[in-house]
Write a protein that binds this DNA or RNA. Structure first.
Lengths: 222, 222
DNA sequence: GCTAATATAATAGTATTACTATCAATTTTG
DNA sequence: CAAAATTGATAGTAATACTATTATATTAGC
């Protein structure tokens, strides 16, 4: 039995040469995920990455314009992957309530299982999403980059789940606000639980994050 | 009639020399607020700041270890100021519901009025809080810096409002989670409204942010 | 009003970062 | 097998994030 091979595409605006098209490209992507986790985005450089993969930094520059755009590439990959998981998780479910519940689970649960779709370590990538996402769009170039479609994948996820919200309650005025609050909130709470615990009430070994946000959404939609 | 002169203190761990103690220190703080707004935190440097205020960058370094700590100083100032406003806004109100409502208003409303407490432009500072906050704690040094008390002021605000939540509903399990979700969410939504509008439903000229989060909190606490 | 202490200015210097450029060696493809 | 494309090796540049040093002001105590 062959396992289902899904393939995640990222907008071509985000790379100079598709990293998925060569061994070097895939090494750049997978090793950058590891390095950003180890060093944090600030201390991560193309030079250090080059040393790790035994390639000159100039080779890395042939794939990505700079590390900022590489970060957006990684985040886009993540959101496309999540979007795929959302479609899959909500397929063949009729009840809008159940559909939304499933979707919220996908959005708010920690990524633990490494069902590794490819050369990408989704668990490590999820940690990058939690710790570094905000840096991708809190820049002076957001508007520009937004026009170029850099944040399409993320917006699509928000749109998909907002539609589920509207399917449950057509008259609800703030579906995007609700869902972006949930997504960002869930990440935030996991980060706080680890580093600034007095800002949250997450208990270890329970899934209070999913519990809290699921309750929240359904109470708001009542 | 003399206007009430309040004074905001920031933890001494955040500066080498108190910028409030000299003309140069105050110039550093007020001009850094302007510059971070103009250039964004990434492009802001002590050298450029020095040029703006006609002082060498080495003089700036005598006040702040680096620009990262200066950012945390500014954010701490903001949260202490907000904490003061919270106390003021909720004073002499008996009803826990009304107290919480007022607090949520202070937390979620845009800072428009420049009731300038000192040399600090609170409107510009609020914009920094919205755009740059996440960069202050999404670093590899969070745990270290948290131990040193760098985030005390923010935690105090969350604690204060969480207590109001508990005053309304003693049995609610997630007060900190709820309030940190509201604070971060409100900032996020204002940022999205300006730069990534498809992630929100904020309508210009209305205060949907305050409306949404106030409704959310009260529904969750029902 | 003078001296000593302190703060600031002026200037220089260093390692690292974030690139860009060039050319040779290797691999791929038609 | 030749041409094209990709990668490696190496060098170089401007800017950043500091640190250090010494001279000049300013202030504070006596």
């Amino acid at each position: 039995m062959k396992s289902l091979q899904i393939h995640i595409d990222v907008s071509p605006e985000l790379y100079l040469k598709n990293p998925d098209s060569s061994e070097l490209g895939r090494k750049i992507v997978s090793n950058s995920i590891e390095m950003i986790n180890e060093l944090g985005f600030e201390a991560f450089t193309f030079k250090k990455l080059g040393q790790k993969i035994n390639s000159p930094e100039s080779s890395v520059y042939r794939y990505f314009e700079n590390k900022h755009i590489l970060l957006i590439y990684l985040l886009s990959w993540y959101w496309s992957w999540l979007d795929y998981r959302l479609v899959f998780a909500t397929a063949n479910i009729d009840s809008p309530i159940e559909k939304l519940k499933k979707a919220l689970k996908v959005l708010t649960q920690a990524t633990v299982i490494d069902q590794s779709v490819s050369h990408i370590n989704e668990v490590l990538l999820s940690k990058i999403v939690v710790s570094e996402s905000a840096k991708a769009y809190h820049t002076k170039e957001v508007d520009n980059e937004n026009e170029k479609g850099f944040f399409k994948a993320y917006k699509q996820v928000v749109q998909r789940v907002s539609d589920l919200v509207l399917a449950m309650n057509q008259h609800f005025e703030f579906p995007h606000m609700l869902i972006s609050t949930v997504i960002e909130g869930a990440h935030q709470q996991r980060y706080f639980a680890e580093h600034l615990p007095s800002l949250t009430d997450v208990k270890k070994e329970t899934d209070s994050v999913t519990e809290f946000y699921t309750q929240m959404v359904f109470k708001v939609l009542q």
